[in-house]
Computed example of a mutant assay.
Amino acid sequence: MNKFGKGIITGVVATIATTAAGVFAVKKTIIDPELKKEEFVNENRRKAARKRISH
């Protein structure tokens, strides 16, 4: 393979790696905290419903 072909392959691999890292970062900083917050709210609703029924 010549230098041009190696450069193209390196560029494609680097682009894919950068995109994957960006997606992973967005997932960790935006999506996961939202899911945790939603689960926390649902857990509190279940607890409140149990208290409301038992009293």
Rank of each mutant, 00 (worst) to 15 (best):
53 I>M: 02
52 R>G: 01
50 R>L: 15
34 E>A: 14
45 R>C: 04
38 E>N: 13
35 L>P: 00
36 K>V: 05
51 K>S: 10
51 K>N: 12
23 V>R: 00
55 H>L: 08
53 I>E: 03
15 T>D: 14
30 I>L: 10
26 V>T: 09
22 G>T: 00
36 K>Q: 04
27 K>W: 14
17 A>Y: 09
53 I>F: 07
40 F>D: 09
35 L>G: 02
40 F>L: 07
2 N>R: 09
18 T>M: 15
20 A>M: 06
51 K>D: 09
25 A>Y: 05
55 H>T: 08
38 E>H: 09
22 G>M: 00
38 E>T: 11
45 R>Y: 13
42 N>R: 10
8 I>E: 06
7 G>M: 14
32 D>F: 11
36 K>G: 02
8 I>W: 04
25 A>F: 06
3 K>D: 06
45 R>K: 15
11 G>K: 04
48 A>S: 10
34 E>C: 12
10 T>F: 14
5 G>C: 11
52 R>P: 00
31 I>A: 03
6 K>Y: 13
39 E>L: 08
52 R>S: 03
11 G>W: 04
35 L>T: 03
21 A>V: 15
41 V>K: 06
37 K>L: 08
19 T>H: 10
54 S>G: 02
18 T>W: 14
13 V>Q: 03
25 A>R: 04
46 R>K: 07
